[in-house]
Nucleic acid binder design. Structure first.
Length: 271
DNA sequence: ACTGGCTCCTGAGGGC
DNA sequence: TGCCCTCAGGAGCCAG
């Protein structure tokens, strides 16, 4: 379940292996991902140089002079650098073969991810055009969050997981940030004080930033099969700890479904 | 304009 | 030991 820290760790790990490389071939073994891998990718990408690998929300973007590859890892996707022609494991659906006898290989057992191709500005692609601000960027702060929460009856957890409001906050980090901020995940967004939303915005930034940092420090070589960043579960306070004592006060952590997503919270610390 | 619900898919884990 | 069932989960999309 790649969340933003995992995507960012992947981006940073891949960059030295793909930037400046020419794509020599595109191999699609399974076209049926979240959306079909477009034929235009195989037709137009070969011969192009990958100038930059960057990220918008959880979308990874590979820029070339004539267009961009848009990759989303869904919840089971991973990318790694393999030796060109190395044996294909199950669920390894797409290879971008590079000019130094390596390939960027996508594995995605559940196929919730996607590999798309656009010749336009990828930020104007329909999947990216409506995205909210980056949580670690300057546009995301307490005032912004308060403006978006105003009048909303939706549970705060659903609001911060809405990519139109802010990108990159998945179930794990939404759960963690709400715990750190002392806010009950089901509380109506519009009924939370500006001061508490300020705190929540800070907690979202902090939890994501520290997870990215942890990913950076544990970043392994993305070559030859060691390319899967971990999920930093060792530093999660409440996610996956239903029934265990709250790390802050010792009260038994509760869980339940909020907005079709499992949530964990401390009934004493979070109001 | 909002909100909740459904959907894609497969691996993991629990129960028997 | 092994099989079967349930569930998780990103996020686009649709219906109310």
């Amino acid at each position: 379940m790649p969340e933003l820290p995992e995507v960012e760790t992947t981006r940073a790990g891949l960059a030295p292996h793909v930037e400046g490389r020419r794509v020599t071939d595109v191999v699609v073994r399974e076209r049926r991902l979240r959306w079909p891998v477009p034929a235009a990718l195989s037709r137009e990408l070969p011969g192009q140089i990958i100038q930059r690998i960057w990220r918008r929300g959880k979308y990874l973007l590979l820029s070339t002079p004539i267009g961009s590859v848009i990759i989303h890892l869904g919840m089971s996707g991973s990318l790694r650098i393999v030796a060109a022609g190395s044996p294909v494991q199950p669920h390894e659906h797409v290879d971008l073969v590079l000019d130094h006898d390596r390939a960027l290989r996508l594995r995605d057992p559940r196929r919730f991810g996607c590999v798309l191709w656009t010749r336009r500005d990828p930020l104007r692609h329909r999947l990216l055009a409506g995205l909210g601000p980056e949580p670690l960027g300057e546009a995301f702060d307490g005032a912004y969050l308060a403006a978006r929460a105003a009048g909303r009856r939706q549970a705060i957890k659903g609001l911060i997981m809405d990519s139109r409001v802010v990108v990159g906050v998945g179930n794990i980090y939404a759960t963690e940030a709400l715990f750190r901020a002392g806010i009950h995940p089901a509380r109506a967004a519009g009924r939370i004080s500006a001061a508490r939303l300020e705190r929540l915005a800070r907690c979202i930034r902090d939890v994501l930033a520290s997870a990215i940092e942890a990913g950076g420090t544990t970043l392994r070589d993305f070559v030859d099969g060691n390319g899967r960043p971990g999920y930093f579960s060792q530093q999660l306070d409440v996610y996956g700890r239903t029934g265990q004592p709250c790390p802050a006060c010792g009260t038994t952590l509760k869980s339940g479904e909020i907005g079709q997503r499992t949530s964990v919270w401390c009934p004493r610390c979070q109001r």
